[in-house]
Design a protein around this nucleic acid. Sequence first.
DNA 1: ACCTATGGTTGGTGCACACCTACGATCATG
DNA 2: CATGATCGTAGGTGTGCACCAACCATAGGT
Lengths: 154, 154
Amino acid sequence: MDCMESAPPSLLKRDGYLLSKVGKAARARVGERLATRRLRLWHMAVLAALDDYGAQSQRQLAARLTIHPSDMTKVVDDLVERGWVGRTRDAVDRRRVSVRLTPAGEGELRRLDAEAKTVEDELLSPLTADARAELSRALRLVFDHLNEEPHERT
Amino acid sequence: MDCMESAPPSLLKRDGYLLSKVGKAARARVGERLATRRLRLWHMAVLAALDDYGAQSQRQLAARLTIHPSDMTKVVDDLVERGWVGRTRDAVDRRRVSVRLTPAGEGELRRLDAEAKTVEDELLSPLTADARAELSRALRLVFDHLNEEPHERT
DNA sequence: ACCTATGGTTGGTGCACACCTACGATCATG
DNA sequence: CATGATCGTAGGTGTGCACCAACCATAGGT
């Protein structure tokens, strides 16, 4: 892992550079935590999506998270194995597999979210509450901007 | 490339998640531009470091950018091939290879930087000037915080 | 002169990630 | 009931990144 460097100075003037570095650090730190439980970010994302949207087919889940359907299968495999989600054949369309969050899965999601929050608080600790709120707002704007403008999709 | 997703909603409350997504998008967009010239981010970073710090040994360069020395060799190989940097054996310590930016390299760096700025401006276009300045400040604080606290180094 | 440490190079490894193809099961249509 | 599309699955590919071990040339201390 890299995670940080001393100072490639003129690059620091590029917000894009800072953004990419800080983002990578955020990802890496949460990723490390998850890795201790042999999990990846996708696992958490799937649990969160199920919690938010409720049970749904793998296809839909994959589309929502913009993950490849075949990869979704593998992620769900892991989650089933741990008992955090359940797979059931859809009664009306038996091709579909409906995925739902189990109580254990809900609990795990809450735990993971708490961990993520801890990491995030540590990461953003140098900011005042105001600055952090402002950052949050700005990120949200930029993020929404990303989605409006798909930019490029293979 | 992924680059964005519609909305894994509860995750959006996590600033760490947004940070990671936006950072990844920033990296990806600059990366794409560089890729059209068969370049990676490291190439640009090396040019920038040489511009900032002046000629120096590969070892030093690698340490500054926190890149593995053996990878630095390869990056410098590419840059030499394009005529953007020059390698010269250090006269006083003939083990060392001093790397310096050529005029062509300076020009290329300026071009790359301009491209990066374009991408960045587009990415952050939803922000007001004030908000962007605030973001810049916040990112800088967080970034510096990262470095004070190496966190974990293999 | 000898020994150890260091700088650079070479040619690898392992991992994560996104992707793809082929397949059986199932559905929806004509 | 034949046809073509869709869902999930299995297994494999390519790419980028960080890392490592082995090597040669050179430096520096004793």
